[in-house]
Nucleic acid binder design. Structure first.
Lengths: 210, 210
DNA sequence: CGTACTTTTGAATCGCATCAAATCTGGTGG
DNA sequence: CCACCAGATTTGATGCGATTCAAAAGTACG
């Protein structure tokens, strides 16, 4: 397993005890393949390395309810506490995941103070990030969501995108067309400076029309 | 401090070590009062017992960005890991909060395995809840958000509301008018059965028009 | 009984989604 | 190196649904 590469996008890996790393399985899933189902006994703690895993539930009429789309990082962490899964996990595309056995994971949390602190910090951070996104999605307009994103995810009113604009649009809860159009408008009225993937908040007001 | 009452709506309290409970301060805040500011050194871990605490940031033009509206439960948990606050905390109305000193909290996490497991479970659960809400807010239509909420937050397609519909609308990222109208429509076409605060998913399809 | 808030409905408007299509881009293979 | 393809980017036209503004009726509470 290439831990260097994994640690690059998930710092908490750096704190994983050697024994826990050694115990990890590397699984490859094809699109549509099911990783676990609702009610299954806990098979481990999972982490998406590539692709996308969806946590879904089925409504009574058969409709799918998506609980989470995970494209990197842990998912179904809460199951570690409850002992079973409360949803299905399905690969939305060809994906790779790491599986850490529950026993090894719990042992690590008990024995390794650094890992335990790091795990708590990791969870805290996930809460913070997710809440920020909830607040962002609560904003009504495309412009507000964009500004909010730059203010919170960027540094000092500036951000360098690491994903495609299409993917960014999905994260913002917008269609890509709406994102493109709004970016153009914000650039035109001086709210944003845009150079390739570098986006900077200008001096003009962005809460109302100039 | 009435721990029985507090535990009723936040089960994790039951696991708090006696020493940690004893160390808690009980603070009363008036509407508009500031609890802490961005950059402040950590003053403790907070928990809303009554009222509403808002976590806000100021955009550079002075506009307020609301990160979280907490009406019960912990907030700014992530600060425990980072050591300082990443936003301001202001009471939106007359509120009561508990403050647990950082040192006592960390000591509890180190010494008390049960409390540590409970805190990890609590954080995991917050992550799960928040991610589900992100997924819900990503849905485009009011009807879809309502169905999603009932399927996930309710039991077996049925839910009993514990908050006003106006507050529910805010949680769904809708205006209260949109919520009222959509509920009426869903009731009319047989998707929902509504009796006061009891809402039940009917048998009809709710993914498309009947 | 009055005040504040929620619930409910109406009408008009606006912004985003949707459908469509052209252009641009990076990567693949001949 | 070029032709080609899949995907991202960009722009246009149209319609729908949520917001917004407005107002009335219901409800809780001192």
């Amino acid at each position: 397993m290439d831990w260097q590469a994994v640690t690059a996008f998930l710092p908490v890996f750096a704190t994983f005890p050697t024994r826990l790393r050694a115990a990890a399985d590397h699984l490859e899933l094809e699109a549509g393949e099911t990783l676990f189902r609702l009610g299954d006994r806990l098979k481990g703690v999972f982490c998406v390395v590539a692709g996308e895993i969806r946590l879904i539930r089925r409504a009574r009429n058969g409709a799918e309810i998506v609980l989470d789309r995970s494209r990197g990082g842990f998912f179904a962490e809460a199951s570690l506490a409850t002992g079973k899964y409360h949803c299905d996990a399905v690969a939305a595309e060809s994906s790779a995941v790491l599986r850490f056995p529950v026993s090894a994971f719990n042992a690590g949390l008990h024995k390794d103070a650094v890992f335990r602190d790091a795990w708590i910090a990791h969870l805290s951070n996930e809460v913070r990030k997710s809440r920020a996104q909830v607040e962002r999605l609560s904003l009504r307009s495309a412009a507000e969501r964009i500004i909010h994103y730059i203010e919170l995810e960027g540094a000092d009113g500036m951000i360098t995108l690491t994903e495609s604009r299409k993917a960014w649009a999905a994260e913002l809860g917008l269609t890509h067309e709406a994102l493109y159009r709004t970016l153009r408008r914000l650039k035109a009225n001086g709210t944003l400076d845009i150079h390739a993937d570098r986006i900077v908040l200008g001096h003009r007001s962005h809460t109302g029309r100039p």
